[in-house]
């Protein structure tokens, strides 16, 4: 491998100067670069369409809570809020479960169970989101309305967040669906982070007389915390952009600082629900501006998460 690499680094052009190779090299370079071009083109076009809205609404777009086609007034605040709240619920519920799965898979599970279970958890990520949405409408929604939401209410009902008559098609249900959907991502990446913890760390804790759980807490989780954090952010990235399942379960009504048991709307679900009805360039522009915001947020979250996870896994391997 190394010999090859040195050759390629030094005298690649002259060595592989046959016409076929040149064509192949040129083509694959072009295809690779076109991905970058595509991202730029998408951003530019979105920006052009959104220009009208950006000019008219300005920064007020981010704080205005009204979205009204009649008066042509468009604000994104309820959708940004909805996105943050549903993603927040998803992380709150999804991270602990994912961590539990990751700990079980990397520290506790007997080998015969480890491989099939890892496979099944990853399969969860392959279920199409519209199927999650269907399940959300017909199974989770009613269960939330009849059992879970009244249950939560009986304990935490004094908080404004949990008031109102549970309807099952609301912000809370969308958050729970999202939690389920991000579990495979977070648990798979966290598991990798835990596996990257050198055994010498576990032995250090064991030799101090730590029990299995103490070893996990003292040596493994602490060591891998940057990786676990990155995994969670990666899950967040998936949650903010998720459209279909949320649109199907959230109830689709712009709401701001309401109860979690009321319908809401996220950026993604608003775009999906409104684009057919956008009648004026301004409303279309406002929707596209929403899209730009979502894209920007997703890009930042994903880049940050990948950086964290990548760095952790490299350092983890380097340490052993």
């Amino acid at each position: 491998m190394h010999a090859l690499r040195i050759l390629r680094g030094g005298t690649r052009a002259r060595l592989s100067a046959t016409p076929g190779d040149l064509v192949f090299e040129g083509l694959s370079t072009l295809v690779a670069l076109s991905v970058v071009g595509l991202l730029v083109v998408i951003t530019v076009i979105l920006y052009l369409v959104a220009q009208e809205s950006i000019r008219v609404n300005g920064l007020r777009f981010l704080t205005d809570t009204i979205w009204d086609s009649v008066s042509q007034r468009f604000g994104a605040a309820p959708f940004i809020y909805g996105m943050l709240v549903t993603s927040g619920i998803a992380l709150l519920l999804g991270v602990p479960v994912s961590l539990g799965i990751a700990i079980f898979l990397s520290e506790l599970a007997p080998p015969w169970l480890r491989i099939p279970l890892t496979f099944i958890v990853e399969l969860l990520a392959a279920v199409p989101s519209v199927v999650y949405g269907l399940w959300g409408i017909f199974v989770l929604g009613p269960a939330m309305r009849i059992y879970i939401e009244p249950g939560v209410q009986s304990v935490l009902g004094f908080l404004p967040l949990f008031q109102g008559r549970p309807i099952g098609s609301d912000v809370f249900t969308a958050g729970v669906i999202l939690a389920i959907m991000i579990i495979p991502t977070i648990s798979a990446v966290s598991r990798e982070a835990l596996l990257a913890v050198p055994d010498s760390q576990r032995e250090a804790a064991l030799s101090l007389g730590a029990t299995r759980w103490e070893t996990t807490r003292l040596a493994v989780l602490r060591y891998a915390r940057a990786g676990i954090f990155g995994a969670s952010i990666l899950g967040l990235g998936r949650a903010v952009g998720e459209t279909m399942a949320v649109t199907m379960t959230i109830g689709n009504r712009a709401a701001f600082f309401g109860s979690l048991f009321e319908p809401g709307q996220t950026i993604a679900s608003q775009i999906a629900g409104r684009w057919l009805d956008a009648s004026t360039p301004l409303e279309l522009g406002a929707l596209v501006e929403l899209g730009l915001i979502l894209m920007l947020v997703s890009l930042i979250i994903n880049a940050f998460a990948r950086l964290l996870v990548g760095r952790f896994l490299r350092v983890g391997e380097g340490a052993e």
Binding site: S200, Q201, A204, A219, R222, Y223
Partner: peptide, 11 residues
């Protein structure tokens, strides 16, 4: 026990 490679808890 003390091991072959130093293994302090880095965090």
């Amino acid at each position: 026990m003390v091991f072959q490679k130093p293994n302090p808890f880095p965090t």
